[in-house]
Computed example of a mutant assay.
Amino acid sequence: MPIETIRGEPFNIRFDGPADAPVLMLSNSLGTNLSMWDPQIAEWAKSFRILRYDSRGHGLSTATDQAFSIATLGHDALAILDHFGIDRAHWCGVSKGGMVGQWLATHARHRMDRLVLANTAAYMGPADLWNGRIKTVRSQGMAAIVQGTLERWFSPRFRESDATTVAKVSEMLTTTPAIGYATCCAAIRDMDQREAIHSIANPVLVIIGTVDPATPPAAGHLIAEAIPGSRTVELDAAHLSNLEQPEAFTGAVLDFLKV
């Protein structure tokens, strides 16, 4: 996978699909990397130029022990688009990626076309929860949080039926740089986009996992109710709905983007 220098820092970036197709940019969740989108790529790449990347602090992209905000992650995405001369793109983000999507739609709406905000929230308190998680990974490493995270991210039924996918996600979590995870946790802790998202004018699809304990259905409905004209799709899944319900997720996004 190619490493590109974006704003002076390394980012792992991959393209799939026809070079002349509309661009669909994908943004990974906290603790994963661009391979989380593997189940969607073959189908989406038939219609779109897929641009996916390891978010700051994740995968093979830059990971430094320096505080930043959700806005920084938004500027990373814009800088990647600029780097490749892309004026406008669709967006699809899960969890943290959906938080970045909200920021882009409120601060750079002219660069975005349609946005999919999946299993995400506009605010994720309390701060103590994030402070505890940050302390744990800084002192004990990522291995200390893997099991609890997998239990939040996948329903018990899925953990029993698809051990291969769960193992792949476990590896993503384990290999995420602890400092990258911690600094992203702090950015999420400090985020509050509940008022700002009322200004979003782009077409938006909110995907909700009906058994998601990390970003519960109420969090998704709050976003949808704040954005005029937004649509919602509910999937029988926990937090990583694109992996737990890959066919349904893939189809829902295509139906929305190809209107």
Score class of each variant (00 low, 15 high):
D38K: 11
F154T: 12
V233S: 09
A224C: 09
A127E: 11
V100N: 03
Q66R: 15
E244R: 05
D16W: 01
W103G: 03
E234S: 11
D236H: 06
N202A: 14
H239K: 12
V137C: 06
N33T: 11
E160P: 08
D82Y: 03
V23Q: 07
A42R: 13
V211E: 08
A224I: 12
V233D: 09
A42W: 03
Q102P: 04
I50V: 14
A21Q: 05
A21S: 12
D54M: 05
I145V: 15
L24W: 01
H58P: 00
A196P: 05
V169P: 01
L235M: 06
Y123A: 15
M25K: 07
W44H: 06
R14P: 01
Y123D: 12
C184I: 10
S47D: 13
R14T: 14
T215I: 05
A105D: 11
V146H: 06
C184N: 11
T62Q: 13
S155V: 10
M25N: 05
S155R: 11
L73S: 06
L104R: 07
T32Y: 02
G31M: 02
K96C: 11
R109E: 14
T72M: 08
G97F: 00
S139T: 15
T215R: 03
A89N: 09
S95H: 08
A182M: 04
A127L: 08
T175N: 14
T62N: 14
I179S: 09
W103C: 03
A79W: 01
I223Y: 01
P126V: 14
I41S: 04
L117W: 00
S241V: 12
L240A: 06
V169D: 04
H83D: 12
E43Y: 03
A163W: 05
T62M: 09
